[in-house]
Simulated scan of single mutants.
Amino acid sequence: MSLVRLIARPLLASSFVLTGLDRVRKPEESGERLRPNLRRAASVFPQLEPIAAKPALAARCIGGAQVISGLLLALGKFPRLSALVLVGSSAVTGFNDNAGDNRLVTSNRIKNLSLAGGVLLASVDTAGAPSLAWRARHMGQDARKQLVKTNKELAKSVRGSAKDARKAAEGVIGH
């Protein structure tokens, strides 16, 4: 892992871990802030109605997911999966209808969007290793090249054997 990744991932994850711990410790307070978003989500996805009815439980679950995913991201373990979980939690929690100073609300929303952007970048960071899709695509291309090469070698060998057989046959028939 490069020095930049060693420093950047824990820094990026720290905000999510602290926020997640706060949600786990104070689920009622966090749940009340989540209630409008949970209601909106339940209006679009009726299956979420039981979750929207218990915002404190939802806040605790989201907080736990943020803590675990943040720690995994900080440690560089399952960075893509943990980053995607953090982006998902940001989508649910990041746009609360906060009352109060509009500049503070706007500043918090921009901060949340910035963190989500950073986590999205972390989710596509392969740490210098190619993705599974890239490896599969190149493995297929390499297999195709090897097959063409083997086919040419086989055709050359068969032609040589056919020439030898023809010469042998001419020798038998000619004598």
Score class of each variant (00 low, 15 high):
Ser30Val: 11
Ser30Asn: 14
Gly31Thr: 11
Gly31Leu: 08
Gly31Ser: 12
Glu32Phe: 02
Glu32Leu: 14
Arg33Asp: 11
Leu34Tyr: 05
Arg35Thr: 15
Arg35Asn: 08
Asn37Trp: 01
Asn37Cys: 02
Leu38Gln: 05
Leu38Lys: 03
Arg39Glu: 15
Arg39Pro: 01
Arg40Val: 04
Arg40Gly: 01
Ala41His: 04
Ser43Glu: 15
Ser43Thr: 13
Val44Gln: 11
Val44His: 07
Val44Trp: 02
Phe45Arg: 04
Pro46Met: 09
Gln47Lys: 06
Gln47Met: 15
Gln47Tyr: 04
Leu48Cys: 04
Leu48Val: 06
Leu48Gly: 01
Pro50Arg: 10
Ile51Ser: 08
Ile51Gln: 06
Ala52Pro: 00
Ala53Trp: 08
Lys54Pro: 03
Pro55Phe: 04
Pro55Val: 09
Ala56His: 13
Ala56Ser: 14
Leu57Glu: 13
Ala58Gly: 11
Ala59Ile: 06
Cys61Ile: 14
Cys61Glu: 06
Cys61Asn: 09
Gly63Asn: 01
Gly63Phe: 03
Gly64Ala: 12
Ala65Tyr: 04
Gln66Arg: 10
Val67Arg: 01
Val67Ala: 00
Ile68Glu: 00
Ser69His: 01
Ser69Leu: 01
Gly70Cys: 13
Leu71Asn: 05
Leu71Gln: 02
Leu71Arg: 05
Leu71Thr: 09
Leu72Ile: 11
Leu72Lys: 08
Leu73Glu: 10
Ala74Thr: 01
Leu75Ala: 15
Leu75Ile: 09
Gly76Trp: 02
Lys77Phe: 12
Phe78Glu: 03
Pro79Ile: 05
Arg80Trp: 02
Arg80Met: 13
Arg80Val: 07
Leu81Ile: 11
Ser82Pro: 00
Ala83His: 08
Ala83Asn: 10
Leu84Glu: 11
Leu84His: 12
